[in-house]
């Protein structure tokens, strides 16, 4: 039963990675990256790695998105 959940999660993971890499607008990519990290956190919990999942949830889903968004705001406001 947990195998089916894992397969569904991995399909969603690859789909969100594809959206993040090949979307037309840049902001969509950055937004989708946080969902990618959240799916990765759940897969790591199923793999019984709570420390790794906690670090991934803290850094990749939280801090990196703020870094990206402030970079985008700085690179468009100069003109």
């Amino acid at each position: 039963m947990i195998e089916i959940i894992l397969m569904l999660l991995i399909l969603l993971l690859v789909a969100s990675a594809a959206i993040a890499l090949f979307s037309k607008k840049l902001l969509n990519s950055i937004i989708t990256l946080s969902i990618f990290s959240a799916l990765l956190v759940i897969i790591l919990i199923i793999f019984q790695a709570p420390d790794l999942a906690l670090a991934e949830a803290v850094i990749a889903a939280g801090i990196t998105t703020s870094f990206f968004i402030i970079t985008i705001n700085k690179t468009e406001g100069v003109k």
Binding site: A17, A20, L21, L26, S29, I30, L33, F36, A60, T64, F68, T71, I72, T75
Partner: peptide, 11 residues
């Protein structure tokens, strides 16, 4: 785009 390259590296 350079930011998109960074997204690729992080993936």
């Amino acid at each position: 785009n350079m930011i998109r390259i960074i997204i690729g590296i992080s993936i």
